[in-house]
Design a protein around this nucleic acid. Structure first.
Length: 438
RNA sequence: GGAGAGGUGGCAGAGUGGUCUAUUGCGGCGGUCUUGAAAACCGCUGUGGGUGCAAGCUCACCGGGGGUUCGAAUCCCUCCCUCUCCGCCA
């Protein structure tokens, strides 16, 4: 039932790539898809497209016939023999239209489904590569070796379970839904406040969005139909708990035309994020590394296509700045073609150094979607010179995700006496200089 | 949750089966007049698809979906949303 709804929403939505791009320069599209190391039968898509256009022409010709017959019949007296003759003739045409239209709609649905299988095309600056190992280390910040001797994984810190109560969370809800208690809760609140203040200072307008969305919204940002099993879904209203604030935020301007002068539009939003993480059990799930519910501030931009890559650099730097202020060592990865998401044109990952686990934790992912999401969500701006609407480019990135920043902070700042030193920039928000597990 | 009223272009607001190719007004754009502006007057006005080098031509769109009919903004079914009143409630 729900699946049908979702699919219907997807098909009524416009396509994700410009069909003209595929018709006119199929080789460019083929090369771009190859860079993402995805298997797509473009020729099949083109064949369906050609069939659909043929059928469209047939239907249009018949509809034109109906239209002119209409005006003719309107001028004739109802009972006249001419009227009767025309009526009989048009009865047959109507039946034909009905049949052809049904066939054409069927083909159109096939075409849309095929189009949904086509990924967004990677930007020219995206490095070649198939696996995560082939991502490029774009930059590294801070000293990774300095704090590594005394550190231990955060879940092994004495008293950890008092502030981060996983056992009771599991009892009350399930695994991956911890309670944050005392200084634990206080630190979460301090980080969120810090992030929102920093983002607001950087020019992002704060928004508190709904944390449930409908199927149409989830489809526009690409959660549906592909990732349906990754979201929590409500009964009986069939709403989805947001996996990220990106979903409600991006949909804010869905089906709207914004002012060209208003671009770039920059917004930030805190929401809890809900992810089922189906299929990821047993892997990197200890402690705060991977949760079903976590807190995150998301950064989102709607920009003019001409400036979207400069805006991506700025967005990435806005996210990075917070890690610098928190004095956490981190690195920036530039994702290679094979590790880029389906919808992204270019993506940077920010990874914070986890001194106790001795590994990098992803805390932000900054992406340019170009017009991919905007086409699906029909978000456009009016070009002043031509007066015509054009698709905006959308960008987003975390700014930042709380639990992994928290994990790194606990591990990197653990003192010999068992307390955790709060970074100077965070002290005004936390209210004290040390977090205590006692 | 109950009862009622509605949903039409950027906005306001007509239209209840047939030149609707959606009346009109406001706003916006262009022009005439003017030293300049205002006023007045004249013209233009949305979105998407297909086709074409282009001008253009063509089809669809009156909240969404479906149906009746030769023909639907208009009639029927269904879903969504808004407003008013009642009830409940943080």
């Amino acid at each position: 039932m729900l699946f049908i709804r979702a699919v219907r929403a997807a098909h009524s939505a416009p396509l994700m790539l410009d069909p003209k791009l595929i018709r006119e320069t199929p080789d460019v599209v083929r090369a771009a898809i190859a860079k993402k190391h995805l298997e797509v039968d473009l020729d099949a898509v083109l064949a369906i497209d050609a069939a659909w256009r043929n059928q469209l022409h047939e239907v249009e010709a018949l509809r034109g016939k109906q239209k002119s017959a209409n005006t003719a019949m309107a001028a004739l007296p109802k009972g006249s023999p001419e009227f009767q003759a025309k009526l009989a003739e048009m009865r047959a045409v109507a039946a034909q239209v009905k049949e052809l239209e049904a066939r054409q709609k069927e083909t159109e649905e096939k075409f849309r489904t095929a189009m949904l299988s086509l990924p967004n095309l990677p930007h020219a600056s995206v490095p070649e590569g198939r696996t995560p190992e082939q991502n490029v280390v774009f930059s590294t910040h801070g000293d990774v070796t300095a704090v590594s001797t005394a550190a231990k994984p955060h879940w092994e810190i004495a008293g950890f379970e008092k502030l981060f109560d996983f056992a009771r969370g599991a009892k009350v809800t399930g695994a991956g839904f911890p309670f944050y208690v005392g200084d634990g809760a206080r630190l979460v609140r301090a980080l969120l406040q810090f992030f929102l203040e920093e983002d607001t200072k950087a020019g992002y307008l704060e928004v508190a969005p709904p944390i449930f969305v409908n199927a149409a919204s989830a489809t526009a940002t690409g959660q549906l139909p592909d990732k349906e099993g990754q979201m929590y879904e409500t009964t009986p209203d069939h709403l989805y708990a947001v996996p990220t604030a990106e979903v409600p935020l991006t949909n804010f301007f869905r089906d709207e035309i914004v002012d060209e002068a208003a671009l770039p539009i920059c917004r930030c939003a805190y929401t809890p994020c809900f992810r089922r993480e189906a299929g990821s059990y047993g892997k990197d799930v200890r402690g705060l590394n991977r949760l079903h519910q976590f807190d995150k501030v998301e950064l989102l931009k709607w920009v003019h296509p001409a400036t979207s890559y400069q805006e991506l650099d700025k967005l990435r730097d806005d996210a990075e700045r917070m890690l610098r202020k928190l004095e956490l060592p981190y690195r920036v990865l530039l994702m290679c073609g094979g590790d880029l998401g389906f919808a992204q044109s270019k993506k940077y990952d920010l990874e914070v150094w986890s001194a106790g686990q001795k590994r990098w934790l992803e805390v932000s992912s900054c992406s340019n979607f170009e017009a991919f999401q905007a086409r699906r969500a029909q978000i456009r701006y009016r070009v002043k010179e031509t007066g015509k609407p054009e698709l905006v480019h959308t960008l987003n990135g975390s700014g930042l995700a709380v639990p992994r920043v928290l994990a790194a902070l606990l591990e990197n700042n653990l003192q010999a006496d068992g307390r955790v030193k709060i970074p100077t920039a965070l002290v005004p928000y936390f209210g004290k200089e040390f977090l205590s597990f006692a």
